[in-house]
């Protein structure tokens, strides 16, 4: 379990970083927290000839307010900030709730938020949150900057639209719609494992609670990318948030999923989990007065 030989760069500036990436292209890999990349290197499943360590690049380690109620998070901000950084906690507490499901404290202390997005594990929490909260990714390269909506960012299992010459420098989470109550649920075999299935749900209702004003629904761990159920979101608007409405919505949101099987369960099981969790998450949104109802 030792990586093959590679060349190592530790640039101090973004311009240096993108220049190295431009020069080495396909053979280069960005190294952020290393929590996903290093195991792949050690098992020789990834064999980059060049590693570009961005941990010392200046000005990538900040969290700043973004728009009304939103935040922008730099490339080397660690996952532990999600439940430690005051700006983040204040503006997007659902991120803090959900982040408790990412691995363990040691992993969150090194793993970066942008690294998780760039890695694009379909069972990871952050990509699903980015899609549900309509985040934007800022990708930089020697030829400039692109801003990509989360909905277009994730392509497939461990695949994004990032070019090998690009580095994800920032993710921007806009302020969530006013009055929306969120729930984040996932099922994993043990606390901290990748999810077998999970869901991010948001509901806002009329003042008397009798009808749904807006909904957000993203399931993850059950396809190559997080899956946003936009049609179901739209159909919920105007309906009463009764058990039968929410149950039907969950069934519809998960009906077409065809998750792969693995040692932890069949595809049918994962689909059923997604459905069960979706009902529970929607109910939790309906009933919660805080922001989220963590559960495993």
């Amino acid at each position: 379990m030792k990586p093959p030989r590679f060349e190592y760069f530790s640039p101090r500036s973004l311009s240096e970083t993108v220049a190295i990436l431009a020069e080495h292209g396909d053979g280069a890999k960005v190294l952020a927290g290393g929590q996903s990349l290093l195991p792949l290197l050690n098992m020789r499943l990834a064999r980059p000839s060049v590693l570009v360590d961005i941990n010392r690049v200046s000005r990538l380690d900040t969290v700043r307010p973004h728009g009304t109620g939103g935040v922008a998070i730099g490339a080397t901000v660690r996952q532990r900030s999600l439940h430690g950084d005051p700006t983040l906690l204040d503006r997007l507490p659902i991120l803090g709730t959900a982040s408790q499901f990412i691995g363990h404290q040691q992993i969150r202390s090194r793993g970066t938020i942008c690294g998780s997005l760039a890695h694009a594990d379909p069972a990871a929490e952050l990509p699903a949150l980015a899609v549900a909260l309509e985040a934007e990714m800022v990708a930089s390269s020697a030829s400039g900057e692109r801003v990509l909506p989360a909905a277009d960012f994730f392509v497939d299992y461990l695949t994004t639209v990032l070019e090998p010459t690009e580095v994800l420098t920032e993710v921007r989470f806009p302020g969530p719609p006013a009055g929306m109550r969120w729930a984040f649920l996932e099922m994993s075999r043990r606390h901290g494992d990748f999810a077998l299935a999970g869901v991010v749900a948001g509901l806002s209702t009329s003042d008397d609670g009798s009808s749904i004003k807006a909904a957000r629904l993203v399931v993850f761990g059950v396809a190559g990318t997080p899956v946003r159920a936009s049609a179901v979101e739209a159909a919920l608007v105007g309906q009463p948030p009764t058990d039968s409405v929410l149950t039907d919505a969950a069934a519809e949101a998960t009906r077409l999923l065809d998750p792969p099987a693995d040692v932890h369960g069949s595809g049918a099981y994962r689909r059923a989990l997604a459905q069960t969790l979706t009902v529970r998450a929607l109910q939790a949104c309906r009933e919660s007065h805080g922001t989220a109802e963590p559960a495993t």
Binding site: R190, H191, G192, D193, F194, V263
Partner: peptide, 11 residues
């Protein structure tokens, strides 16, 4: 250990 699961202190 992603697939061979031993209980941790959380379990």
């Amino acid at each position: 250990y992603m697939d061979y699961l031993m209980p941790t202190v959380m379990e």
